[in-house]
Simulated scan of single mutants.
Amino acid sequence: MEIAGVPHELIRWTSRRSDQIAACLTELEHEYVTAVDDDGTSRFLRVVSERARTKLNRIAAKMTRPPKQKARPLAQLRAWWKASAILISGVAADVINSLLEYARAAAAAIRARGAAVVDVALAAVDVAATVFVMNSGGRFHRRHLLAEARRHLALALRGRRRNLGLDDRIVTAAIATYCLDISEPKTSRGQQPGYRLYTARWALSGLPARRPPIPAPDPDRQPPADPGAPNGPRHPE
């Protein structure tokens, strides 16, 4: 995570935890690809898959987690942070002492480059498309549209304060133009606007039909197959 106006050296100084996890992950991956059973065969694949790397990353994060420290006053923590940043990060002391002013100046420059006017129609289609893709089965509620509309405004306005009700206008336009109500309410609460269920209005008939995925065994527990082995089971003659 980077913040405008904050020197990159200071950000790197605060990312020591991720460096420790990365170093531990490298060691775990080496152990993974070199692990063998009692008979000398490889226990896992010679290449670390994405699934295995995700598991190893969780293990590395747990192994490198520092012990919990005793609670201290916020003022004491801030004083320690400032002194440590000046001594270790390599950033000038005057920059650290005026860090808030640097960040505010950078934010003002960024806002000056962004337009203050939001295209509601364009925002509506962007919000509807994003929510449709991000939710399982392409089904969503009004709250999902509202959350995405606010994220869209935060990006479009570059942190400026949005006009009151602008997020609701985008959601209303998205529902009216690009959303289809597929609710089947069985209670009075289900008939309320906040509980209505929607999907995208645009036609998807032109897309190729998707076949359900076939479950596959976990490849991380099996060594690579012998290229000379038969592809299927042998049947008795």
Rank of each mutant, 00 (worst) to 15 (best):
M1W: 06
I3P: 06
H8N: 05
E9R: 15
L10P: 14
W13G: 07
S18T: 06
I21D: 12
A22F: 08
A22S: 15
A23F: 09
L25V: 09
E27C: 00
L28Y: 01
L28H: 03
V33M: 02
T34D: 00
A35R: 10
A35T: 07
V36T: 11
D37M: 06
S42W: 05
S42C: 12
R43A: 07
R43T: 07
V47H: 13
A52Y: 03
A52G: 02
A60N: 10
A61Q: 13
K62Q: 11
P67K: 10
P67W: 06
Q69M: 05
K70M: 06
P73M: 04
L74F: 12
S84Y: 00
I86S: 01
I86K: 03
I88H: 13
I88T: 05
S89K: 04
G90Y: 08
A92R: 07
A92F: 02
D94G: 00
I96G: 02
S98N: 15
E101C: 03
Y102N: 10
A103C: 02
R104H: 03
R104Y: 05
R104A: 11
A105E: 11
A105P: 09
A107S: 14
A116P: 01
A116E: 03
D119S: 12
A121Q: 09
V127S: 00
A129H: 14
F132G: 08
S136T: 11
G137D: 07
G138C: 07
H141W: 12
H141D: 14
R142S: 10
H144I: 11
L146M: 09
A147N: 06
A149P: 15
A149N: 10
R151C: 06
L155Y: 03
A156K: 13
R158C: 10
R158V: 12
R161L: 10
R161S: 05
N163D: 14
D167L: 07
R169C: 05
T172D: 15
C179Q: 12
D181I: 08
E184D: 07
E184K: 15
P185D: 13
K186E: 14
T187A: 14
S188K: 15
S188Q: 12
P193T: 11
R196H: 04
Y198K: 07
Y198M: 06
R201W: 10
R201I: 11
A203S: 15
A203C: 14
L204S: 05
G206V: 09
L207K: 03
P208N: 03
A209V: 13
A209L: 11
R210W: 11
P213G: 08
P213E: 06
A216E: 02
D218E: 09
R221Y: 06
Q222I: 04
G228H: 12
P230H: 05
G232P: 03
P233Y: 11
P233L: 05
